[in-house]
Structure formats: structure tokens, C-alpha cells
Design a binder for these strands. Structure first.
Lengths: 349, 349
DNA sequence: CTGTTAGCGCTTTCAT
DNA sequence: ATGAAAGCGCTAACAG
């Protein structure tokens, strides 16, 4: 059990007394070793050793310095999903790398969707926040602004006066769907959830504007752009909405799509994971890819390589690096918004 | 850029003055709302709103309370590897879940293998530490002890007076290798790295005691136990040592093993990822599994299900939960050390 | 190179 | 139900 009041651990004052120096000399020994003569330094460190002094107390130091040297990462509105999503993990990895380089700690904020989330954000001892893509109406966004600390948002929502690190999802979606929907009569889309309720369904006439996750919304807009470019009315396009980003769920929805009377002949998915689910459903339904049905993914993950998926390449890791750099200072650096189309064998064009 | 001195954010004293109450009343409004009359409460909150006061400063609060309500997680001696390992991510997910439930923050410690790691650990504003499995000679272990804060170690090393959450790796390895090595003439092992240098090589006569990662050492011991049980001299057993836990690296090493004159007919791997690499190498070398060569994995991940791997089932997520519970109070709970053998089609017995 | 002073923003203790 | 005093452990700013 961690007691509310943790065990006393010895103070700088005690170390100074034992070493026969002033508190400031002891302090300098830790914070600016150069300002202290080697002899004194030794004496102080020895006294510390003797007392089992673990070094300056981090909380006291933060209070006095006005900085915690810790970055807060808000990972989605559901912590559980965050770690199941390899792209979120890649992003986290990029953020963590920059923190390590700069000697910053990285605090993961336990956002659960409950009412206490705001309080936790306000109570986080961090200098700045990075927000992993979330919904326009996510209440933590307001809580973060209230802290008046620097923020960088990944993906969305775009906030006035807040740096946004993102690729152009609409343009990328338009480009990939142009390949997916080429020479297609009845194309379909496999989408991420539209809002934090995370409903799962299949429908036509899904208005992109309904989607409160900006990334999802922009991709739907891009798919719609591509459909219109090809003269396909968007209202004809079947959209499967998954509650989470998973192959199994996409497979189940694709089952439904393929079983229906309409003979869908193209599916653009929002992740390689989803596309994999679609491929599996196709196999079971005896549809040849890309002859009967073309499929596209998103992310260019190992799955895409293995299964020959035409997909959108982007580096979530780089984007994580860019977010951390932007918020800790040093500029987002290049390539944070880079994306490209990788053509493989899952599309006809 | 984050300035060293962050922007003033308004203090409780200012709020109190504006609300026309004492500082303590303002403080109670946040920390013990019940102790303040609803009217006063409203007045204080309104003053806070007006001043844009974001709530009590976390560092000041921590200093005064003597507790940060944050848990520190030491994720391996190389942050980069940690996120590439799905098992480490599952563990992290379990720890994060408990933190979220308890309203604790979770600080990931940016361990890089450099000399500053100790300083970072000492500088971490956390109440307690959870250590993801590391090597006996990892210097952060000493740094953690020096902080005099509660610690729980996952996997190893075992430290006097420190709670260890782990399965019995030796027993599990013996059990799985008994299946892998059954009716085998020249079995082999695919191992995790032996120490933090992470050398990659193929050798015989690898002494388990050489391995400084306790988990790796114990598994090697278990494999050796199984070999001895079956009357196979351990010195004959080929051991492929991977630098990291990855399918591609295991595949490369397996290539080397299968190309050699010795006709290896069984490989026990330390992860399903490694086993997958072995399976791929077998395919390319035209070796039938399990007829020509039996293969076992470890972890019972989706990979194992998909490829029909005989493997060791354990829940890293549960172990993460157990570690967090143990260190934050509440007991590790059941099933933290549960493991079992899952028999599938990759072994003959 | 070393020391003195002051105070970071908050909450515990003990009053009223 | 509210308030005054004290101090958590440290370091910036300024001497000497």
C-alpha cells in the first residue's frame, strides 16, 4: 500500500548540515555541479550517500522551477482502444522517443470517458499536452485549454490557436478512393466510428458532416470527392461503420455487405486492419480481389505488404515525433504531413 | 517553445481575494467541497472562472501532500524495443487500466541505455515504480532502489524485499519444450538476447547462466531441463539468439540453422513472433511442420491461433494489472502467475 | 566558489 | 463553516 504521506526521505538541508556546507552549495552540487569545487562536491555527495538521500525532491523542484519537465499525452477517449491500435502505439513511440532525447518524462493520461477526466487533466503535473486524435465534442479538449498549457493536437480537432499535426486526410482519401473506385459500379467504404458513441452499422447516404471525429470526417469527404469525380452518386455508396479499428469487426461488416443483393465491387477501408478483414470476407464469399472486387487499406503497415494491399502510406511515428517537437520546442520538422499512395495488387488500376 | 518558467496561471490566493474569502476556503472548495457552504462554493468557483484559474497547481499540491498520485513505469532498457513488442504493449495496457481506475497518472520513463537514465529515474515525480522485465545488471535497478519508493518488478530481476510478478518461466519452458523436443534427434532453441548488448548469433553449449535477462535465463534452463528429461545432451542443442523479439530476425537465424549440415528437427521459440519467423523459414526450405520439424511459440497471441502454433499461454495484460495493483495497494489478485500449454498442429506430440 | 534571503502554491493543524 | 499561521523542499537572485 502506498501511504498518503510517503516515508521521509531526507532533505537537502540535512545533507548540507552533515557535509558542513550551506544548503545552496548542496543544491548546486546537484543542479549545477560546475559551480562547486570538486572537494566540496565530494563532501556533499558523501553526506548524501550516508543519509541515503535520493537527490532533490521532484515535486519541490517543479514547484520552485515552475516546470515539471514532463509531457502529457492524451491517448484517445478510450484508453483500452488506444493500445490495441498499432498506429496509436506507433504514434506513442514517436512521442516517447523525443521525450527520451530531451530528458522529459511522459505522462499518459488515463482518459476513460467518465466525468472525472477533466479533473485528471487539470491535475496532471505536466508542462504541455499532446492530444491523440479525438472527436470535436470530446470534453477533455476544453479541460486541456483550461490548463492554459501549450497543446499540440494530432489529427484533429483543429482548435483556434492550437498547432495541428496531420496529413491532408481528405486529399489522401480522394487519391486512394480514386484507385479503389476506378471502373466500379457500386463501391463501398469501410469507416471508423462516426462519434464517441461508436455505433456499428451499414448504411448509405452517410453524410461526412455527421462524423465528429475530424479524421474520419475528412476521409469520408475524400471518398465522396472521388466518387463524384467518377460520376458515382455518393448516396449510392454503402458505408460500413466499425465501432473500433479491428480486422474481425471489418470482416463481419464486409460479410453483411457482400451477402446483400447489391453486388459491391470495391471497398475503400480506413486502415489496413480493416482491409484485411475485408479480404478475409472476400475469400469466404468466393470473390476474387481485385478482379471481382478491389480493396484499399490505409497506413502501409506490414499487413499491407503481406497481403499486397494498395494503401496510403504515412508514418504515425514521425507524426508523434513532430507533435512532441512542436510542443516542446524545435519545430515539427519535415515530413510530418507526408503521405503517398502505394499501389499493389488489390486494385485494378 | 516551452519557457523554463511557465506563464503565471493565477493562484488560489488571487481567487480567494476576488471571492472575498480566505485562502483556506478557496482550497477546501477544491479539495473538500463538502466542507464549504454551497453559496461560498459558488462564489469561489465563479471567481476562479473569471480569473481563468485552472485549479490547484499539481506540483504545489504534490509537495504539500507528499504524494504525486502518479505511477512510474520503467519500460525496458530500450524504449524503442518496448513499443515494438506486442507483449510489452499488453503489459502497459494492464498497468494503464489500473491507473485509470484509481485516478493515478502513469509516467513512462524514457530509459535509453545512457548514463542519464539514473538521473531521470531519480527526477521522476512518482509515488512508486513498476519495472518491465530487465537484466540483472541494468543500472536503473539501483537508481530505483535509491529513490526509496515502492517497487514491483515484472519478470525479473528478483530483488530482496521487492515484489516480483512473474510466471514460472522455467517450468513453462520445460513443459513446452517437452512437446517441442518429443521424438526429436537434434532440437534447437530460438532465444531472446542474453544481455543488454543484444548480440545476435547461433551457437551450441549456451549456458543458461550466461543470460543476464532472468526471464531468458529461466526459459533456457527450462528448455535444458526438457532436453535432459528426454536424454538429449544440452551441449548438442543449437541456440539461435535474437537481438530483438521479431519474426524477421528469427526467420534469418532459422535460415542459418536450417542451411547448416545438422538436420534440426525441432525448434522451441521464446515468442510466437519468433516461431512465425521459424515457420516462414521452414516453408522456404521445404520443411514440413510438424512432420520434418516441430515448432513451439510462446504467448498464445493471435499469431499462434492463425498459424496453429503449440504455445505457452499467459496474459501479460493481467500481469500488468497485477503489478499496478501490487504497488498501489490492493494485492496482485489472482491469475497473475497463471500459464498453460496450448497444443495445436505445430508439434508432433 | 559559497552563503543569505525569500518565496514557488498549496494544505495541515489548530483555532474561532 | 471559516480562518491564521506554518512550512512541505527546493532554487532564483543577489550578495560576499
Amino acid at each position: 500500500v502506498v501511504p498518503d504521506q510517503l516515508p521521509r526521505r531526507g532533505t537537502l538541508a540535512q545533507v548540507a548540515r552533515l557535509a558542513g556546507v550551506s544548503v545552496m552549495t548542496a543544491s548546486y552540487t546537484y543542479s549545477r555541479p560546475g559551480r562547486v569545487s570538486p572537494t566540496t562536491r565530494q563532501r556533499v555527495l558523501q553526506a548524501a550517500e550516508q543519509l541515503g538521500y535520493p537527490g532533490p525532491d521532484p515535486s519541490a523542484r517543479s514547484l520552485r522551477r515552475g516546470s515539471t519537465r514532463t509531457l502529457g499525452l492524451i491517448l484517445g477517449e478510450r484508453l483500452t482502444y488506444a493500445f490495441e491500435d498499432p498506429q496509436a502505439v506507433a504514434f506513442l513511440s514517436g512521442v516517447a522517443q523525443v521525450c527520451a532525447e530531451r530528458g522529459y518524462g511522459l505522462t499518459l493520461l488515463p482518459i476513460t470517458g467518465s466525468a472525472e477526466d477533466g479533473a485528471r487533466v487539470r491535475a496532471a503535473a505536466v508542462d504541455a499536452f499532446v492530444v491523440w486524435t479525438t472527436a470535436d465534442d470530446d470534453p477533455v479538449v476544453e479541460a486541456i485549454r483550461a490548463t492554459q498549457r501549450p497543446v499540440v493536437v494530432h489529427g484533429g480537432p483543429a482548435l483556434a490557436g492550437v498547432t495541428l499535426v496531420s496529413i491532408d486526410n481528405r486529399a489522401a482519401a480522394r487519391a486512394i478512393a480514386t484507385l479503389a473506385f476506378a471502373s466500379s459500379q457500386s463501391p463501398a467504404v469501410m469507416s471508423f466510428p462516426l462519434d464517441r458513441r461508436r455505433a456499428s452499422f451499414i448504411a448509405t447516404g452517410v453524410e461526412p458532416a455527421e462524423a465528429l471525429f475530424p479524421v474520419t470526417r475528412q476521409r469520408l469527404e475524400g471518398y465522396r470527392d472521388a466518387a463524384q469525380d467518377l460520376g458515382i452518386p455518393w448516396t449510392n455508396v454503402v458505408v460500413g461503420v466499425c465501432a473500433t479499428n479491428s480486422a474481425t469487426e471489418a470482416e463481419a461488416l464486409a460479410d453483411g455487405m457482400l451477402a446483400d443483393g447489391v453486388s459491391i465491387d470495391a471497398i475503400a477501408a480506413m486502415s489496413d486492419q480493416q482491409a484485411l478483414g475485408v479480404l478475409r470476407a472476400c475469400k469466404r464469399h468466393g470473390r476474387a480481389v481485385p478482379a471481382d472486387l478491389s480493396v484499399t487499406g490505409w497506413d502501409d503497415s506490414v499487413v499491407a505488404v503481406e497481403w499486397g494491399l494498395t494503401t496510403v502510406a504515412q508514418s504515425l511515428r514521425e507524426q508523434g515525433v513532430a507533435c512532441a517537437r512542436a510542443v516542446l520546442g524545435g519545430g515539427p520538422g519535415p515530413s510530418a504531413d507526408a503521405w503517398s499512395i502505394v499501389r499493389r495488387q488489390s486494385t485494378r488500376s
